[in-house]
């Protein structure tokens, strides 16, 4: 029973961690139809922000503020100088963001070196939940993930700005003719997506090995999650990360992480093949 509970918590932990990382990807892919290959590096920069905050002996939580702000600025600049030139060329967005990914990762290597940095765990005390002892910081991550997902949902589906953003995606020309500044919406959405990636990086940094390659590891499961769940809604992201997260945790607890990667990938391919628009996607 206790084992089942721990596996359950692990599953939830992995899934919510994945959801945290996937959020920005969903916003940028689902709302802007841009496949952001640099998402992993946005995540990476968020993690290094946490590292810098720690080096500067500043309190842990300031990184949770600085990382999204830094990444929003970077996202804004990248949108302005690169992304906006390729909106109408869908495939090229993959390539351009891949180039950004390469350059950003290398910039991190130049500045911080290729080796891995360790971050102190800000909440080292384990916590007892439902009768099992579980690392406190992991529970914190789960909370942040839930907050971010709920916040993002409310922002895009319950506010006027969110409505405007979705309107621009649905029909750019018409939204513009209703007085909506579509360029501003583009910039803001991309910056928002980048900021959530930065936040995810900062939050996850204490439980990861922070090195220049850390972004890639999350990129693939994050992409598979949104393809499995469907790109058009946040609900799809929830479902996708749930499936990928659950199957990964269970398979790796039975066999090994390598087997889990292969099995989960195979599962994802089958689902994507059978439901090309994702499980929640509508057929066109």
């Amino acid at each position: 029973m206790e084992l089942a509970l721990i596996i359950g918590l692990d599953t939830l932990n992995f899934t919510l961690g994945l959801l945290l990382v996937t959020m920005g990807l969903v916003v940028i892919f689902g709302l802007m139809n841009v496949i952001n290959m640099a998402h992993g590096e946005f995540f990476l920069l968020g993690a290094y922000t946490m590292y810098m905050v720690q080096q500067a002996k500043m309190p842990f939580w300031t990184a949770l503020l600085f990382a999204p702000i830094l990444l929003a600025v970077i996202g804004f600049l990248i949108e302005e100088f690169v992304i906006r030139h390729v909106y109408h060329r869908f495939i090229d967005t993959i390539l351009a963001t891949w180039g950004i990914s390469l350059a950003l990762k290398q910039a991190v290597i130049v500045i911080f070196g290729p080796s891995s940095q360790s971050i102190n765990n800000p909440l080292p005390e384990p916590v007892e939940v439902f009768g099992v002892v579980y690392p406190g910081y992991r529970l914190f991550i789960m909370g942040v993930s839930l907050l971010l997902a709920t916040g993002t949902f409310l922002f895009f589906y319950r506010t006027n700005i969110g409505l405007a953003a979705r309107g621009v995606i649905a029909n750019r020309a018409m939204a513009a003719s209703l007085g909506i500044n579509t360029r501003f919406v583009d910039r803001a959405t991309f910056a928002f997506g980048a900021a959530t990636a930065g936040l995810a990086g900062a939050v996850m940094a204490p439980i990861m090995s922070v090195d220049p390659q850390m972004g890639v590891g999350f990129l693939i499961p994050a992409f598979l999650s949104i393809l499995v769940g469907g790109t058009t809604s946040l609900l799809g992201a929830l479902l996708g990360t749930g499936i990928i997260g659950t199957s990964s945790t269970i398979v790796s607890s039975i066999w090994s992480q390598v087997v889990a990667q292969v099995v989960v990938f195979g599962l994802a391919i089958v689902i994507i093949r059978l439901f090309p628009e994702g499980l929640t996607g509508r057929r066109k």
Partner: peptide, 16 residues
Amino acid sequence: FNEFSVEQNLLMGAIG
């Protein structure tokens, strides 16, 4: 906006 409700369509006219 096909995916939006009637109300949301009208709101789009105001928020810009």
